[in-house]
Every structure is written in C-alpha cells, then in structure tokens.
C-alpha cells in the first residue's frame, strides 16, 4: 500500500511547528499504525532527516501512551481501538493520512506528535486513590462486592488515561476521564469511605488544569478506545452533588 502522510512537526514546546508531507510506499496492510511510523522513521533516518517523535510503550492497548489524531479522529477511524492496535488495512490504498497531536490547552505539545498529559496525572494525584494500611493482605471476604458492581467498577477502571476523550471533545473536556477514575473507586466499598473528598478534589484539579466544560455531545464515548460509557459522567455529577449537599467529611 502507498500513502501520503501529512504529519505535524514541531521542534519543541515553544517553537511554532508546521505540517510536513511524506510519501511512503510498500506499506504492508498487516502493519500496525505505529509500525508504519517506525517504517517511515527508518526511511527518514536513512535520508539523514530527524525522525518523527511519537509516544508509545506497550503496543497492545493497555498503557494509553500512543494517542494520535488521525484524519480527524482520535486513535483513527476504528472504534474501540488504540492507535497501536490500528492496522493499515483500515485505510484506503493511495490515500492521504493527516496525523496531528492531541489539541488542548491542558495538553501542550512537547515535540512533534507528543503532548504532555501530566494534567491527567495531577487529577489522579488529587484523589484517585484509596487509603489503606500496609501490612498483610486483608481478609478477602471482609469486603463482599456483588458481581454486577465489580464488573461495572472494572469497566470504569479499564480507562487507560490516553486522553482521547479530551481530543474527541469539541470542548476539550476531561469529564469522561475524571468520571471513570472517580467511578472505579466510588462503586466499590473500599473506595466509598473517601468518595466525597475524592470527587471534590479531582474535579477541582480538573478545572484548574484548564480543560473545557462538558456539554454532553458524547463524542468522548464514541471515540474512547476502551468504550467507557458516559453513564459514569452522570455518576460523577451525582457524586459531586452529594459531596456538596452533604458536606460530611471523613478526614
């Protein structure tokens, strides 16, 4: 397969950046999208040009580092698929592929296609944890959790923090991320104790990072590679409301 690639190149966080066009031939349809970029970089290195910088780690859809904005869609044209799991057969032979970094005030570009997502990290640090004593493992039957509840908490916990929800949102809102991370604890007994402070702190941090406000377009759900449901946003809103109305604090 042959492609014309239009890729955002930016030297560093402060430089201006622009699109550069490359043509790439003999791409195998079995290549993953990142392998295609590896292949491009090999060619660029051979030509003495600087390779395109992109982020990746696990290449199996679990680390959340590989987010790219491909032809107007975060993680490309396939639903429930991370960029690393996307294959070149999903594209038309001979077509043009435009690759951009996530665009949001809270995700400044570091270089080329890599953005700084530590804003999501800081939301987690603000309350995305439970406090437990260290020592021997707790007795496993002391916290019974029903199967449907544990399944739902796990659905929320399957968020890989890639930031596609922000990238897919016309408002650059991080509500789906925050909601998933709040819900994964709020649903289970271990997380209930601190749930009021958690939602309060995490939402505060989310606002401080400069993400946009949700207007329920549900684009985040559509392009989330893990299919996280916007039901969790409603759950977060409920949690937030009860944290404001019943200001009982445990700590």
């Amino acid at each position: 397969m042959n492609f014309t690639l239009k890729i955002w190149r930016q030297k560093n966080a402060t430089s201006k950046g622009s699109f550069k066009t490359y043509s790439l031939d003999d791409v195998s349809p079995e290549m993953s999208f990142l392998e295609m970029l590896d292949y491009l970089n090999k060619m660029l290195i051979e030509q003495g040009e600087e390779p395109v910088v992109f982020e990746h780690d696990c290449r199996e859809g679990i680390c959340g580092s590989c987010g790219l904005y491909i032809n107007g869609r975060p993680h490309g044209p396939m639903r429930n698929t991370t960029t690393c799991e996307l294959h070149m057969r999903a594209f038309n032979d001979g077509g043009t592929i435009v690759i951009e970094p996530w665009r949001a005030k809270a995700f400044p570009v570091i270089k080329d296609l890599v953005v700084d997502r530590s804003s999501l990290e800081r939301i987690m640090q603000a309350g995305g944890f439970i406090s437990v004593n260290t020592g021997s493992a707790p007795e496993s039957n002391s916290n019974p959790v029903g199967k449907p509840v544990s399944d739902k908490a796990f659905d929320a916990a399957s968020c890989i923090g890639c930031g596609a929800c922000v990238a897919a949102c016309i408002n650059s809102s991080a509500m789906l991320f925050a909601a998933a991370k709040i819900a994964q604890y709020a649903l289970i007994p271990q997380g209930k104790t601190e749930s009021k402070e958690r939602v309060d702190q995490m939402v505060k941090q989310m606002d401080a990072e400069g993400f946009g406000f949700c207007s329920n377009t549900y684009g985040c759900e559509f392009d989330c590679p893990k299919g996280i449901s916007i039901d969790f946003i409603a759950l977060m809103n409920r949690e937030f409301f009860s944290s404001k109305v019943c200001k009982q604090r445990h700590t």
Binding site: G72, E100, G212, Y218
Partner: peptide, 14 residues
C-alpha cells in the same frame, strides 16, 4: 480550552 485548533476538523460522531 483548545487554543490551537485541529487542521482536520473533528470527525467524531456526535
């Protein structure tokens, strides 16, 4: 919240 806009407009279905 998005100072630099996308070159390709969002195609996410909404």
């Amino acid at each position: 919240a998005r100072p630099v806009k996308y070159h390709r407009p969002l195609r996410t279905e909404t």
